[in-house]
């Protein structure tokens, strides 16, 4: 891992591409969802306009330092994952700062944003934020359990904690993908992915009906812009992470785009047709099927 100027520039370029792909992808997804609802939906570029609009709000209210830092933490969570995630297998420019233990760091970063959010939302002072974030944290914790089990299973399988190496091990055709070589871990992870992306049935955290609208209730303007920027990045990198871990990674941008799209689509596919669980129901659900699958995955690997 070398920190050269060109490396940093390449990484920034990657971030820029990921951000744009994230925005476009969310536009596409919303259009697809709109189609299920028999309507046309937003223009594809709507997420961009929304983002600009949010940054263009003139006034801002702050509730304190942590309120400021919340979105920043969240963004650093997303960017953090990106930084240590190899995007394109075998590419020097697009493997970012991945290193041999990056998987662990990424798992940590996944949680990092949530924690930051918790602090900020708590300071926002809105009861909905507080309730939302407490739900969010408890759900996220349970999401992490099967996810972690799956990762452990992978670590056992590939004997490594480096994403790049995991990807490398999957090269050479679909048959080598973890999806087929370790189906239980993939299943556990894909189910926990549903929770990670925050679509129903696991979106009670931000549910507009039950608790409007959870942690970001008080966030607006630039804060919201930052959160949305982060969401765009996070969706792509999370999908890219799963792509790397279970679906053979990507050797070029096209493959990356296709695979992240499909992985993200999976959560949309489920989310559109199911209502959301109550928080204790979703916690219980994660601690049942995905957990069991995760344990099985480990047992199988041992």
């Amino acid at each position: 891992m070398e920190f050269t100027v060109s490396k940093i520039l390449w990484t920034l370029l990657g971030l820029f591409i990921v951000l744009n792909w994230g925005l476009i992808m969310s536009g596409i997804m919303r259009k697809i969802v709109a189609r299920v609802g028999k309507r046309y939906g937003i223009p594809l570029y709507q997420p961009y306009i929304d983002l600009i609009k949010n940054y263009a709000i003139r006034s801002q209210i702050t509730h304190g330092v942590m309120f400021y830092l919340g979105p920043v933490f969240r963004l650093s969570g997303g960017v953090g994952i990106f930084l240590f995630l190899p995007l394109i297998f075998g590419s020097e420019h697009w493997s970012n700062f991945s290193f041999s233990g990056d998987l662990v760091l990424i798992l940590y970063f996944q949680f990092f944003g949530m924690l930051g959010m918790a602090l900020g939302a708590g300071e926002g002072g809105h009861p909905n934020s507080a309730i939302g974030i407490s739900r969010g944290l408890s759900q996220f914790t349970t999401i992490e359990v099967p996810m972690t089990l799956a990762v452990i299973s992978l670590a056992i399988q590939y004997n490594t904690l480096s994403i790049a190496e995991i990807v490398a091990a999957q090269q050479g055709g679909i048959a080598n993908w973890t999806m087929l070589t370790n189906p239980f871990a993939t299943a556990a992870a894909m189910l926990s992915l549903l929770g990670a992306f925050g679509h129903s049935p696991f979106n009670l955290v931000k549910a507009p009906n039950e608790i409007p609208i959870g942690p970001p209730t008080e966030y607006h303007a630039t804060f919201l812009g930052v959160l949305r920027t982060n969401a765009a990045i996070l969706h792509v990198v999370e999908a890219a992470l799963f792509m790397n871990l279970f679906f053979g990674g990507a050797t070029n941008w096209f493959e990356l785009i296709l695979k992240t799209f499909l992985i993200y689509f999976w959560s949309v596919f489920v989310g559109v047709v199911f209502p959301r669980f109550r928080i204790e129901q979703s916690v219980r659900w994660f601690l049942k099927i995905p957990l069991a699958l995760g344990i099985i995955a480990i047992i199988v690997m041992i």
């Binding site: 609802g37 129903s200 049935p201 039950e210 199911f274 959301r276």
Partner: peptide, 16 residues
């Protein structure tokens, strides 16, 4: 009723 639990698609059809 579905809408209150997050099943927005049915609402879309129904309202149409």
């Amino acid at each position: 009723q579905g809408g209150t639990t997050g099943l927005g698609i049915g609402v879309q059809w129904g309202v149409y």
